[in-house]
């Protein structure tokens, strides 16, 4: 026994410290090759074309070296980009807006999904039958779940409640990840929630919940298409690699067109990449309203106004600092 901590203890400790330092010093900056694009995303329906394109080698064929990193939640995507672990990211528009307001230099470069009246809706406010909530006004004093703070869901809830004359303080807010919401509704732990697919279609089929749809869509007013999913990048990357971004967008666009034209391929991809059961994949829809990926300052301004009404904006930043259209 004393042999282990005998003569060589100094070496061992030194080795441990060096190993620790090496771990901390870790990976340095990667080589700055133009065609390299590191993409951080949270798993959602809109990613599907990107995942399919990567698997089929479409990015490589277009001369891009795309590296995909999946993370949990919009703030984590921003964190990945801000820390230099990724160049480009996908999330709902709220995290990049929040990031810009707080001094993180990212801009939205493409739109991946929209919602519009009457039936292209991809987020829902729902209540369980047991809660006795019949309409938006009925939310007053109830337990309502959102998936995360500072998320699109918070905006959804506050915008619709404002229409019914309610404020956020009128409900008891619970932060609960999407996967737990169905059980929480059925067990009566929450009365209402904001949800997206595939969870919505699962809850809608659940007789025990007896779902009551209170509102559809992120904003109460969706006569014009409302931005739902965006791709964003750092100012630095946009300035240095405009062509890379354009090629990236072009490949996404083409893959998405192919998927939209081929229902079988779409369902197969939803099963493979989103992990859906083949049954759930039958209900799968891409949130596509406009075929092209163009993003405009006007549609971001709509969201900014809504966030301002909801009290989600801590300070004002001009919309031109938030958007830089890079769609092909």
């Amino acid at each position: 026994m004393p042999i282990f901590f005998g003569r060589r203890i100094a070496c061992k400790i030194a080795a441990a410290l060096i190993a620790g330092a090496a771990l901390v010093a870790g990976v340095g900056a990667a080589g700055a090759e133009n065609a390299k694009l590191r993409f951080a995303y949270l798993l959602a329906d809109s990613d599907l074309p990107i995942l399919v394109a990567q698997k089929n080698g479409d990015f490589a064929k277009a001369g891009l070296d795309v590296e995909l990193t999946e993370v949990q939640g919009g703030p984590a995507v921003v964190a990945a980009i801000a820390s230099g672990s990724a160049d480009v990211g996908y999330a709902s528009p709220v995290p990049p807006i929040n990031a810009r307001i707080n001094g993180i230099n990212v801009k939205m470069v493409m739109a991946l999904g929209h919602e519009v009246d009457p039936d292209k809706k991809f987020s829902w406010l729902i209540a369980s039958q047991a809660s006795g909530i019949a309409d938006l006004a009925g939310l007053k004093g109830k337990k309502v779940a959102v998936n995360a703070n500072g998320s699109l869901c918070v905006l959804t809830l506050s915008d619709h409640m404002a229409k019914a004359g309610l404020k956020m303080e009128d409900v008891e807010l619970v932060v609960l990840p999407f996967p737990q919401q169905e059980a929480a509704l059925e067990q009566g732990a929450i009365d209402a929630t904001c949800t997206v697919n595939p969870f919505f279609s699962s809850i809608a089929k659940n007789q025990a919940v007896g779902v009551k749809i209170l509102a559809e869509g992120v904003l109460a007013d969706e006569r014009e298409p409302v931005l739902n999913d965006v791709i964003f990048a750092t100012d630095d990357f946009i300035a240095k690699n405009p062509d890379t971004l354009k090629t990236f967008g072009k490949v996404i666009f083409e893959t998405r067109q192919k998927l939209l034209a081929d229902r079988g391929a779409m369902e197969a991809a939803a099963t493979e990449f989103l992990g859906l059961t083949s049954e759930a994949a039958k209900d799968f829809k891409l949130p596509v309203v406009k075929p092209e990926l163009t993003i405009s300052e006007a549609e971001v301004q709509v969201l900014l106004d809504a966030m301002k009404r909801a009290g989600m904006l801590t300070q004002e930043v001009p919309v031109k600092d938030m958007v830089s259209n890079m769609a092909p």
Partner: peptide
Amino acid sequence: VFLQRQQENF
């Protein structure tokens, strides 16, 4: 909750 809200708002 406070901590998480601060982090998610950067």
